[in-house]
Amino acid sequence: MRILLVEDDEETAQYVARGARQSGHSVERARDGLEGLALAKDGPHDVIILDRMLPELDGLTVAKRLRESGSQTPILFLTTMGGIGDRVEGLEAGGDDYLVKPFALAELLARVNSLTRRSQRTGAELQAVLQVNDLEIDLIARTVSRAGQRIDLQPQEFKLLEYLARHEGRVVTRTMLIENVWELHIDPRTNIVESHMSRLRAKVDKGFSSQLIQTIRGTGYILRGN
């Protein structure tokens, strides 16, 4: 995947670029807002990682100008600005995701993956049934079955499974689940995600030879078919 990284801090840029390249992405780097805007317009990129406080042109303006010019490339804000209202500002300016520094590399990469796939298949949201191997999720009737057998899920479990299925084959972090499934912006001190996931896995995978939901240690979960 081609990533455009607009970041003025040398250390952060190297940290991100190295991590992204190790995961098989190619990284192009801009050091200020104007350069970032120019490179983004030259494009094409699969995702743009954009700092907010940049020399020459701030990140919010870069995002706005890009959207005005008709670019649809997903933008992930990566910034120290984590105050109240900052995230909303970022999303309103045209950002697709907002990650506050300090961050874990795994978190950033999971979000980058999530963004690029999302932009490739926007049609997925219109599907009525999500299918992964023998697992079927009926989004309209809100029922789940595996190998023809009906599985009863609690509402929160259903929401988690739906999100995992929409991101099939990609790592989903705990924070992504908390932010996107529950629409919460909290840093929980209890294992709220793990507790739900263990119940969900017990219902979805127990008694089957293939385990669809897998834990990625220290990062999150992945729902993977064959």
Binding site: P155, Q156, L184, P188, T190, N191, I192, S195, H196, R199
Partner: peptide
């Protein structure tokens, strides 16, 4: 209601 649903399993596990 939503938060209680979200926290109930974590509470049960403890």
């Amino acid at each position: 209601r939503n938060l209680v649903e979200i926290y109930r399993p974590a509470a049960e596990d403890r």
